[in-house]
Nucleic acid binder design. Structure first.
Lengths: 348, 348
DNA sequence: ACTGGTTCTGGAACCGGTTTCATCATCTCC
DNA sequence: GGAGATGATGAAACCGGTTCCAGAACCAGT
């Protein structure tokens, strides 16, 4: 015998069973005002008895609010632990505020020309979510196209590229300039004079950090040095290759500021292979404070970015944006923190 | 002057503008049969002109299908790169199949007693999603409670604990037993005889791997050795502490099979600190093939788990489950792969 | 021109909730 | 005890889609 799938219980079933109107049941569902305690108790009892679970979509459709947000990772090549942790911050905050999170990844990658980036399918319909959180590698033009759909959005400010025109939007970020400057100043205080920066400045975040580094150097009346690599996409390899040119330079630096921890890792490994030790021969600082920082030996001195906190701030700012459309836009900075470990050695 | 937020365009607006019936417009929306080419073109034109974006929730409510799945990470302490990559596999597969993914994390953690684990709020309503993917650390009882709500689900089989009773469900997993056995056999072929296993067997996945290790040892007529640590929760530290007891043992092993790469990393670091080298003094293999494996020096020989592939398989299996309710349940195994790097040295 | 059969089409009913509204019971106050 | 305010209630309209259905338009065959 075929057992039929039982029809789900609806609000009208509850109303009928409780000999009440659907309106009353609905008011009970929503912690309703204007329901007598006796009636409420009775209807709650009936709901429990029937195993009533209200239909989420149906509730949202008339309520005009989906209570979902979408975390959109722009660019498939950026599926990394950094964004995973921002997502985690978003999720934590969302669940505290009774919201749910849709996780989506834009279908393009780094090979896609900026003008050709398609809008993700989830944007084709309205009503999936109330607002959008953008991370990854974000183009200004992409933001403007989404804004044209009147979708509330916030973005991880550090990751926005505006080669194709600026955009106005709410952003949360960290101060890469200041963070790197502080790390550089720390190296200077430790007695270092020839300090190099290694990072691919075609990415906006490395550009910003490079500027912070340069500012600190100039401020200390020191000459900024940069070493680069060509034609590598992975960050660790970028660091590894850049070291090659660093070692052949006539006045070898005594310290390196790496654009992030992955690059620092590459630098570390390349030095190790050359028989050079961190920090005995060359001191090293990174940026991000990823897991790698603790895995290196000695553990890496680096600039910690509070990724979960950024996620939380993104979520909160998005909710404000949803409730208050239109300018002005705000910019929230989550402060970084220099984490001193053992990869830097003072120089007399 | 206050600029009113423009009312969103509905299907009835399109119908009115196109002088057509809503039914016809709906049929056009759904690639509809029984619409004359001329009418279709005309209505599409009107839709484009009005910037019509259909309301997702409204479409789903009568369609009885949300086209969403929920990726639920059970246990907050398991927010790690492993699950992030499974999630990535799920997302990739979902977007190919025009589904969206809700990312949720259960609000309990490892301190929560199994019986006290609350159902996540997203389960209180129906209609958010069509099916559930469970990862993290999953209790059999938890699964049964969700099944009682008639929610289709699949789970990462390796991560299910059945101390509180078994459960029947669709599962995708990898064969930890076989994977570790192969790694152990590889060590044996390389001439090792005293091989130890290090891993906290109170976790189901380490238990399974430990059994695979033991089977391979017995099969090679060797005696299984285990070293453990007490009262540490982080895996790397577990490895580090276990090494202490390993080094004091009377007949020191020449090779170690670690429960996973994090433990292997801890082992590696502890040995390094004792002035012992991998692989010269002790050979080492891990499990998972996480990022850490490549960061160690020398890079770690380990058993690769195809995490994205597992995510894809979970997604596909879930869709099957949604369309065909009721037993039988299936079990899908994604094969592992021994990745030989340089952390093992042959013994004469 | 009439028939029978497709193909198209618009309108109504429906999905499962929320919100508005009219009604009626109670309560307060003079 | 009657007027007016307040609270509780059920019915109906609504949210924005889909689906069903009756009828119109069209077509070929005799």
């Amino acid at each position: 015998m075929m057992k039929p799938v039982p029809e789900p219980v609806t609000i009208r079933d509850v109303a009928r069973q409780a000999r009440a109107g659907v309106g009353t049941v609905s008011r009970v569902l929503n912690g309703g005002a204007n329901v007598s305690p006796a009636t409420r108790e009775w209807i709650l009892e009936v709901m429990r008895h029937l195993d009533f679970r209200p239909h989420a979509q149906a509730r949202r459709i008339s309520g005009r609010r989906s209570e979902m947000v979408c975390f959109l990772l722009c660019n498939r090549d950026f599926v990394h632990s950094f964004h995973a942790r921002v997502l985690q911050g978003v999720e934590t905050c969302a669940s505290e505020l009774s919201r749910h999170v849709i996780y989506a990844v834009s279908c393009h990658n780094s090979n896609t020309p900026p003008g050709r980036i398609p809008l993700p399918p989830i944007l084709r319909e309205r009503g999936w979510f109330d607002g959008l959180i953008l991370t990854g590698l974000i183009y200004g033009n992409f933001i403007r196209r989404i804004q044209a759909l009147r979708i509330p959005l916030v973005a991880l400010g550090n990751n926005v590229v505006t080669v194709d025109g600026a955009a106005e939007f709410d952003r949360v970020g960290f101060d890469g300039h200041k963070g790197t400057a502080e790390a550089t100043e720390y190296l200077i205080r430790q007695g270092h004079r020839r300090i190099a920066f290694i990072g691919d400045t075609s990415f906006p975040w490395f550009k910003e950090r490079q500027k912070g580094y340069a500012a600190a150097m100039l401020n200390g009346r020191l000459e900024p040095l940069a070493f680069t690599a060509k034609g590598v996409s992975a960050f660790a390899e970028y660091g590894e290759q850049a070291v090659a040119s660093l070692l052949t330079s006539k006045s070898r630096p005594t310290a390196v500021v790496a654009g992030n921890d992955k690059i620092a890792y590459g630098v570390w490994r390349a030095l190790l292979r050359q028989g050079l030790s961190v920090p005995d021969h060359i001191s090293l600082v990174g940026f991000d404070d990823r897991e790698e920082a603790l895995l290196m030996e000695p553990p890496l001195t680096t600039v910690r970015v509070h990724k979960e906190e950024i996620g939380e701030a993104l979520m909160k700012l998005l909710l404000e944006r949803i409730h208050r459309p239109g300018p002005p836009f705000t910019r929230r900075i989550i402060s970084t923190e220099l984490v001193v470990r053992r990869s830097v050695k003072p120089r007399p």
